[in-house]
Design a protein around this nucleic acid. Structure first.
Lengths: 201, 201
DNA sequence: AAAAATAATCAACACGATGTCAATTAACTA
DNA sequence: TAGTTAATTGACATCGTGTTGATTATTTTT
């Protein structure tokens, strides 16, 4: 078996990806046809179907690639952390790295983040965050018997809050730097939104 | 000018609404055609176009009606509150009322909540919550100069968190009661997620 | 460098959904 | 009951879809 992909395939897929991104920015993901994509990508419409079943399959595969990227990043960041402690410095560094990735792929991330369902980026991020923040061999350990509310709602609350902030950021024309965003997110998470408001001392 | 709508129109729109809801549950909103809807609604396809421009227009108008309902509910709840104080009892009652509405319209709410963009239910809820929680003539007043993080991120964080919990709830087969959900949400909001985890004393 | 393998192109096809229209029928309102 | 308005019907052109078989072009292998 051969590991290297045929160059023609790489080129085609790359062209499709670029067309997808640019067209999403222009007309959104709903009003977007296979024909649009292939025309923009300068490839035959039939070629598209050699690689993807339909538009949704393309989005699915794209989602998988992005998810893989994100997992790789968090994995690498974890490897960097010498001690098994969950400290703010490490978290901040990881956040910056992720925000940079989001920034570089903003148009795609916007669309993928807005898709719900079992096989969504939201869920993928949910899994990644859960693994990296709560299920690690670190000092902070959550005891389920201590939970005041059902686990799933706690997760949804925290993850949705974070994704909401990221989405707000992605929609901006002039975005804060990844470093600033990491600060903001850590502030909100650790001091809490009520503190950030100024209600809690 | 006549205020009462022609009965035929009411019937047609009602049939379309019902067809929309049932079909959304079966095949989702993406794989859903005007033909599907009109067939299920037992009306002529042409009739659909007498009332809506296309599928998205139908979703838009539906969104507007839902938004209107929600605004009416919060308005009524506010009127009930005799004093101008923002107390937990009132908040809880309002939450219960809203959760009941979500419950009764679950299939539709699921879809509408998953739609992003300027004209989305997410944004409508954002506006409503903002008006009702932060901008009222009550004791709690937020001073923008006290904010630790930019206002928009704070809003996104809080609103997204709440919507995330609601969505998690809507996806369940056997849902907690509106009363239980109101408790959960108030617990998360006022004591904070970290407290709910058991990390904060 | 030639041969073998495989990807991309092209043209054509049937199919289904879309949006519109004019003429007709049916139902509602006043 | 008369007048108004909504719904139906059948038809139409248009567009995107997904597939196919034959052909060309490019890449990989030997």
């Amino acid at each position: 078996m051969n590991v290297t992909e045929d160059r023609r395939i790489s080129r085609t897929k790359e062209a499709i990806r670029q067309a997808l991104v640019s067209l999403i920015q222009e007309k959104g993901v709903d009003a977007l046809s296979v024909k649009d994509i292939t025309t923009r990508a300068n490839i035959n419409r039939g070629t598209f179907y050699l690689h993807y079943k339909d538009k949704f399959d393309l989005l699915d595969q794209t989602l998988n690639e992005i998810t893989h990227d994100l997992e790789k990043i968090t994995w690498e960041m974890n490897a960097l952390s010498s001690d098994k402690l969950l400290n703010t410095t490490m978290l901040s560094a990881a956040s910056v790295r992720l925000f940079k990735y989001f920034d570089a792929n903003a148009p795609l991330m916007k669309v993928l983040l807005s898709i719900k369902g079992t096989n969504s980026l939201q869920n993928a991020i949910k899994d990644i965050m859960w693994r990296n923040i709560f299920e690690q061999d670190k000092t902070t350990h959550i005891k389920k018997e201590n939970l005041l509310v059902p686990e799933e709602y706690l997760i949804s609350y925290i993850i949705s809050a974070h994704i909401g902030v990221i989405q707000e950021w992605l929609e901006k024309k002039f975005r804060e730097t990844p470093e600033e965003m990491a600060d903001i997110l850590i502030n909100l998470s650790f001091r809490g939104p009520l503190y950030a408001i100024g209600l809690k001392p």
